[in-house]
Write a protein that binds this DNA or RNA. Structure first.
Lengths: 119, 119
DNA sequence: CGCGGGTGCTTGCAAAAGTTAGCACTACTT
DNA sequence: AAGTAGTGCTAACTTTTGCAAGCACCCGCG
């Protein structure tokens, strides 16, 4: 498999269920809102199925919470990512840069900030 | 199906391929780095397969870019969430940089973009 | 030439995702 | 009590993911 898979022990399902119950939604209601079957949602909540990116996105929408929150819960997004600095964020988000170029820009920026602080 | 599926027209694959090529990696190299098969990566890049959340996460790591960038490209994360997209804007807005530093960062960024376009 | 190793791509197949139909249970009506 | 509608869950099935193996092609080297 090589890629990590979450089993029935995954906390994501429990989180989804809690969120659903907080919103006073039934399994069917949320499933309909997300465009998935109730059976499938039931299995996701109990950790027997591993939702795809699209289903995860749909669930985030249906639960009216940010996709980031859900992804962080799923363990596929580092909660600290998307940090506090606009420049670094923008560099990380720019789709036209290579990894190395990103790295160079971030380093350059940080060195500037460092120099400015000490000066 | 009820949940949106991306077909061979999806831009995600092209984006991944572009990032891979910018990093001078072969299909096999990136696939190995991500812990997925080269066959599968090839299919993802051409839009014939739709990677799961976990594979997407692995790809983000392998390409050394933030998971958010990739998710935004996959259309499963609203790009406006969590900050701006424009590197130059962010640099210009940053209050902790000198005019000279701003200029250098912008020039560096633009030269990268230029190189990527031609090469 | 002929061989080994690099590239990306295709082909079946196993495993997982996701659906439809239907179960058992509860609560409210008539 | 019987009927209807709500709840979540199960079973059987179809579709998609993801992989091992192998294809065809190109290049440098003997």
């Amino acid at each position: 498999m090589a890629v990590k898979r979450s089993g029935p022990d995954a906390g994501l399902g429990e989180f989804i269920r809690r969120q659903r119950e907080l919103g006073h939604l039934s399994v069917r209601q949320l499933a309909d809102a997300c465009g998935i079957s109730n059976a499938y949602l039931s299995q996701i909540e109990r950790g027997f199925r591993n939702p795809s990116s699209f289903v995860l996105k749909a669930l985030a929408d249906g639960l009216e919470l940010s996709a980031e929150t859900l992804y962080a819960q799923a363990g596929i997004l580092d909660p600290s990512e998307g940090g506090t600095n606009d420049v670094i964020d923008a560099v990380r988000r720019d789709p036209y840069l290579s990894a190395r170029q990103r790295e160079m820009l971030v380093e350059m920026y940080e060195s500037f900030r460092k120099v400015n602080d000490s000066g």
